[in-house]
Simulated assay, not measured.
Amino acid sequence: MAVSDLQLVVNTLLYFSIFVCGFVISIPLGVANTEASATCLLYSTITVSDFSTRPTINFSRRANCNFPIYVSVVGCIFYALGMGIYNLYTIYKSQRDPPVVSQMYVLPIILNTLGAFLMFICSCIISVGFKQFCDSLMDKPYKYFRCSRAQALDIVADGGKQTGSLKHFYTNINITQTASWICTLCWVLLVVSGIIRFVRDRRHQIRPRQDLDHGAIIEEEIDTEAHHEALSKVVEESSSETTSKMYDPLPVLEGAMRNPLPWFETMWKIVNV
């Protein structure tokens, strides 16, 4: 495979990495929500009224969990999969038509920038919401030294109507958080790679135009010099002909040999004067 297609291969691998991250983000977060009575644990808080009773969890809005799930499904799974397949097709097609690679970077740069921005927001939502929930678990009076130790905690939810445990919330959300930041990094690498490739292709397109313009200027200068040389030769020839006509003594001598009388009269007058 040509070295010029190496960047396209790397981009394809990044797209498929984002595709895998989409599942790793959405599935564990969805499982954590299901185990928490189909609500969202991000930004939730734990309150304890009495040491003898179970802690009460105040769930946050479901949008805090639904937004990262939707972005990971639409942007990371569907879009990244489509772009990965498209890049594979482009790699195959570039073996016969190499210039096709330089025609596919404008629109993906815009979409990848949007994807990187949305994924960064999702990563921040997950990380900050997870930290806030863990801080409430490790806060007094019901204090855990590590958030992971509260996974088997029995809780009261929905205003005391439901009881249960948090089960594997820490493992699931921690996996989602790690995958979201890895996915964000892949998006950023795609944006940087697309910009570098776009700038490089633009330079390759401008160079032939500059070479053609430079060649045209040189040809024009050569034609101008040739024209000046030809014009100089014509001027020299015409001036030499004029000079020979004005100062050539042969016609005067020939006239004196044929009729010497006017010549001697002229010379006599000059001497007598």
Rank of each mutant, 00 (worst) to 15 (best):
F78I: 15
S102R: 09
F130L: 12
Y70M: 13
V101G: 00
M104E: 11
S72L: 06
L114T: 10
V101N: 05
I77D: 02
L107P: 00
R146H: 12
F120L: 08
A157E: 09
R146N: 05
S136M: 03
C124Q: 04
V156R: 05
I125F: 09
F145D: 01
Q151K: 01
V100K: 12
C76Q: 05
C76L: 09
D154K: 05
Y144V: 14
Q132I: 08
K93M: 13
F120T: 12
F120V: 05
C124P: 02
I91T: 10
K140V: 15
Q95C: 11
Y79R: 07
S148T: 11
M104D: 10
C76A: 15
Y92T: 09
A80S: 15
A157H: 05
S148Y: 09
M138G: 12
V128W: 13
Q132L: 04
R149G: 05
G115V: 01
S148K: 08
V74D: 01
Q151C: 03
G159V: 15
G129C: 12
C124W: 07
L118N: 08
M138K: 09
L114Y: 07
V71S: 04
G82T: 13
A152W: 00
L153M: 11
K93V: 09
G160M: 06
Y70F: 13
I77L: 11
F130W: 10
F130A: 11
V71Q: 01
Y92K: 07
K131G: 03
V74H: 01
D139M: 06
R146K: 14
I85L: 11
D154A: 15
T113S: 13
Y79P: 04
G84R: 02
C76E: 08
L81G: 15
I110S: 02
N112V: 03
V73C: 04
C134P: 00
F120Q: 07
N87W: 08
G82I: 06
P108C: 09
Y79G: 07
A116R: 00
I91A: 11
S123C: 14
S136N: 02
Y144A: 03
S102M: 06
Q151A: 15
A116E: 07
I110H: 01
Y142T: 08
P98W: 04
Q95P: 00
R96K: 13
A80L: 03
F133A: 10
Y89S: 09
D154H: 06
Y142L: 14
G82W: 00
V73L: 08
K143A: 12
L137E: 06
L88M: 14
S148W: 05
V101L: 14
L81Q: 08
V71W: 02
A116Q: 04
Q103G: 04
P141W: 02
I121A: 11
G75Y: 00
I77K: 01
Y70T: 14
F145N: 06
S127M: 04
V71N: 03
I155C: 13
I110K: 04
P141Y: 06
D154F: 08
Q95R: 11
D135H: 14
V74I: 14
Q151T: 10
S148Q: 14
K143W: 12
K143F: 14
C134N: 09
K131N: 11
S123K: 00
T90S: 07
V101Q: 05
I69D: 03
V106A: 13
F78V: 15
G84K: 03
D158M: 10
I110L: 12
M104H: 12
V156S: 14
I91Q: 04
S94W: 11
C134Y: 07
L88I: 15
I69Q: 10
